[in-house]
């Protein structure tokens, strides 16, 4: 006999079907969520260049190397950042590959030139004026300032919060100087301090530092009350954190010097390439954007006579 199922206890078919669907969909969603989670959490990314740098010049390696020395007026890294672009420019514009040769002090840079390790040197005005008679060296170029003049100045500065308003106010205070081989240091010691009665024991401390940047830092952090440096180096700080209280007379800007016996082609290559910098204003601005601020306005030819005032003053 046919027996009907117990309807009271049987799950309705439609409910069972929907329950199966619900279970299947839930299982599918759960599985896909787990898979998606594992995919999302895999954050691996292949190697990719995200900040493009300047391309390496493939032709440079085959060119003959010419080294140019630099006096240690700035820390090595700062020197490389400001001078290496000039080397790259010269390499690109001449048949030579130019490399920087840093001296640990002003004298070593000059020694690199005199020994022939360097074909040229970025020398200081004072050092050149002093050594021109002893060494067979000649200046070929000197940088222009913002006004297009091949001159520079040294300045005596204090923090803007300092009470010193004139050089006489520095009595009994500490003075930071750059290298003893620099014009700035010698201007202070030989002219500025004596003429203001501070030559002998007038100051609490006078100390030379290897780099101009160190002098500026020492004054800004309060280690010294005043400092001497080149005018263009503190241009952006004047009025905000630094106040200038004395300025030197204009002197010829620091020359690029070569040995008189240096290969004329090398001298000509350096001279021509650097003189060309200032001929087109727009091009100059783009070209020199990474150069040391002293050279961004281009160069002018230099002659030994230009430094006669410095020599006489010395």
């Amino acid at each position: 006999m046919h027996r009907e199922p117990d309807q009271a206890h049987a799950i309705p078919r439609i409910t069972r079907r929907w329950a199966l669907w619900l279970i299947a969909v839930s299982a599918g969603l759960s599985l896909s969520t787990i898979v998606f989670y594992s995919i999302v959490m895999d954050v691996s990314q292949p190697y990719a260049v995200v900040v493009k740098g300047d391309a390496i010049d493939p032709t440079a390696a085959s060119k003959p190397v010419v080294r140019i020395a630099v006096i240690s007026r700035y820390p090595p890294t700062v020197t490389f950042r400001g001078y290496q672009p000039i080397m790259d420019y010269l390499t690109a514009r001449t048949p030579y590959r130019f490399e920087l040769l840093l001296g640990s002090d002003y004298a070593e840079a000059l020694q690199h030139l005199l020994s022939g390790k360097a074909a040229a040197v970025f020398l200081g005005s004072y050092l050149y004026a002093r050594e021109r008679e002893r060494a067979d060296i000649i200046p070929i170029l000197k940088p222009l300032n913002e006004q297009g003049e091949a001159v520079t100045r040294s300045v005596l500065f204090v923090r803007s919060t300092s009470t010193a308003r004139a050089i006489g106010d520095l009595r009994g205070r500490r003075l930071a100087l750059p290298s003893a081989e620099s014009y700035s240091a010698n201007w202070a010691v030989a002219e500025l301090l004596p003429s203001n009665g501070l030559a002998e024991g007038g100051l609490a401390a006078v100390q030379n530092f290897a780099h101009h940047h160190t002098v500026i830092a020492k004054v800004l952090n309060g280690s010294f009350d005043a400092g001497i440096t080149r005018e263009h180096l503190i241009k952006d700080l004047v009025g905000s954190s630094i106040r200038v209280i004395a300025t030197s007379v204009p002197i010829p800007s620091p020359p690029i010097v070569v040995r008189r016996t240096e290969t004329p082609a090398v001298i000509a290559a350096i001279r021509e390439a650097l003189l060309e910098v200032g001929r087109d204003e727009e091009r100059r601005r783009i070209l020199t954007k990474d150069w040391d601020i002293e050279f961004v306005h281009g160069f002018a030819p230099a002659a030994a006579e230009d430094y006669e005032p410095v020599r006489r003053w010395r």
């Binding site: 691996s44 990314q45 292949p46 190697y47 990719a48 260049v49 995200v50 493009k52 740098g53």
Partner: peptide
């Protein structure tokens, strides 16, 4: 990683 000298590269 590849020794590219022409820019800053990253990978994870």
């Amino acid at each position: 990683g590849p020794a590219s000298t022409e820019g800053i590269g990253t990978r994870i």
